[in-house]
Design a protein around this nucleic acid. Structure first.
Length: 481
DNA sequence: ATGTTC
């Protein structure tokens, strides 16, 4: 067990578990939290899992835990670990089952006051046009060859097919495509699942939401990002669907043998991994990149569905949706970071954590380079969401990372048991939020009561200096599986 | 998260 006394307070928003806590810890664990969030984090396995992660071979710096943390498969959601390349490991459980789960935000100049009478229709049209729900198939079935192209080209494939604008790709992490993806590293079963699901939302905490830009905290940055107070914006939260899920399932199973072959001492079977330079590690990395590219393409096709839905409701003239940004929050990336005064090549695993690089990063479009990387933080349904920017301090504190959402405090099981979906829908509709959901029990699982207060989470990362506030969004229409 | 127990 871990208790509050095991933490050393670095400052009001940063706490450390030193390596002296456990003889096998390679690096300390740092958690970004206020006291309340720290205490919440001790209620589940989050911190124990972070300590387990700190025992893996080849770790550098420290394991990072974000304020939206909750327990996950092997590694907590809201965790970051960096491993030496070569010499360290790569672990599917430290990326997550939904490879490149992420968020895209689109923005408009449509004023909420003018749009208000049409929002219920808009919700219905979006629900009709954006396939959602477990196992749901999309409107763009892919051949084997096309799936391979999506894996290799990511969002670029959607541009060639007419589902994207060039600016969308500019304003996507990695410009919508990771180099080095190998579709043949994905199993036949993964491919079969992936072929029919491009352009689908999925279920669970995935959603498509129309928001009002409620308050702007940095006028200059908001202007560059096209965020206008009182106007509509759209958030799309989803990932690589059955394709990425199957890839994770396959490699969690296969890498068990790598653990034995390379004699890795695992603190938890769920942290199954392989040396990153091994054939097994490289296989997972190439498959993970395929799923990541699939997810970039998936969110792009959903953006296309969103645009045609807006045109259907508001007409072609007044419905322009410009992309603000698209970020991943379940991904492993080879990056260079300064650790203890030394520049190291590392594999940064971000699971329920976003990249948050500061100003000057060359991988950003020109207009964003002076600002830093946009960080998109969806809240729980019916509450706020936030647009932040990465900072230069994130580079040295959190491997250039920030939080990804509100973070669960109630298990899915408990939420389903305690909350009535149809009653929740009524309450949200009463607050002026149009809800279109395929499953009432699914809706209950995602109730605001099941999550932390996202503004509290955002306050921690902002006070800790790893991201800064640009704008707060408020939902007016939600589409869920 | 997930053809929600291949």
């Amino acid at each position: 067990m871990v208790s509050k006394e095991d933490f050393r307070r670095i400052n009001d928003y940063l706490w450390e578990i030193p390596t002296s806590f456990h003889p096998k810890m390679q690096v300390p664990v740092w958690i970004f939290a206020d006291e309340e969030i720290l205490e919440d984090a001790l209620d589940d396995l989050s911190i124990i899992q972070a300590v387990n992660v700190a025992r893996l071979p080849g770790l550098v710096g420290h394991v990072v835990v974000m304020p939206d943390v909750h327990q996950g498969y092997g590694m907590p959601i809201g965790g970051v670990m960096a491993t030496r390349v070569p010499g360290g490991i790569i672990s599917p459980g430290a990326v997550g089952y939904d490879i490149n789960c992420g968020v895209r935000v689109l923005t408009s100049t449509i004023k909420y006051e003018n749009a208000k009478p049409y929002l219920s229709d808009l919700a219905s049209v979006l629900y009709r046009n954006c396939p959602s729900g477990v196992g749901e198939k999309g409107s763009i079935p892919l051949t084997n060859e096309e799936l391979d192209q999506v894996c290799q080209q990511g969002a670029n494939w959607t541009l060639t097919q007419g589902y994207a604008e060039a600016e969308d790709l500019q304003r996507t992490e990695e410009f919508g495509c990771l180099a080095g993806a190998d579709p043949d590293a994905a199993s036949k079963r993964a491919k079969e699942r992936g072929k029919g699901q491009l352009g689908t939302l999925g279920a669970g905490n995935h959603f498509l939401e129309v928001d009002i830009v409620e308050e702007v905290f940095d006028q200059e940055a908001a202007e560059v990002m096209g965020l206008h107070t009182g106007c509509l914006a759209v958030q799309i939260h989803c990932g690589s669907r059955g394709f990425g899920h199957q890839i994770c399932t396959d490699y969690v199973q296969n890498l068990q043998f790598a653990v034995i072959r390379y004699g890795i001492d695992l603190p938890d079977r769920e942290l199954v991994c392989a040396p990153i330079e091994s054939p097994e590690g490289q296989g997972y990395l190439a498959a993970m990149k395929s799923a990541a590219n699939y997810a970039f393409a998936n969110r792009q096709v959903l953006a296309w569905h969103t645009r045609r839905s807006f045109q259907e409701v508001f007409g072609k003239q007044d419905s322009t949706l410009r992309q603000v940004y698209d970020i991943a929050h379940n991904m492993a990336k080879i990056e260079t970071h300064e650790v203890d005064g030394e520049n190291l090549t590392v594999c940064v695993h971000r699971k329920g954590a976003t990249r948050a690089f500061g100003p000057g990063f060359a991988g950003l479009p020109t207009e964003y380079r002076p600002l830093g990387q946009p960080v998109l933080v969806p809240g729980s349904m019916g509450t706020h969401s936030w647009i932040l920017l990465g900072t230069s301090a994130s580079d040295r504190l959190s491997f250039g990372s920030s939080c990804h959402g509100a973070g669960r405090v109630m298990s899915r099981h408990k939420a389903k048991r305690e909350i009535k979906g149809d009653r929740l829908k009524g309450e949200l509709e009463h607050e002026g939020i149009s809800i279109r959901a395929g499953s009432m029990s699914g809706l209950a699982e995602e109730a605001p009561q099941a999550y932390k207060d996202v503004s509290r989470v955002v306050n921690v990362v902002s006070q800790a200096g790893i991201a800064r506030k640009v704008a707060r969004l408020h939902p007016v229409a939600v589409v869920k599986g």
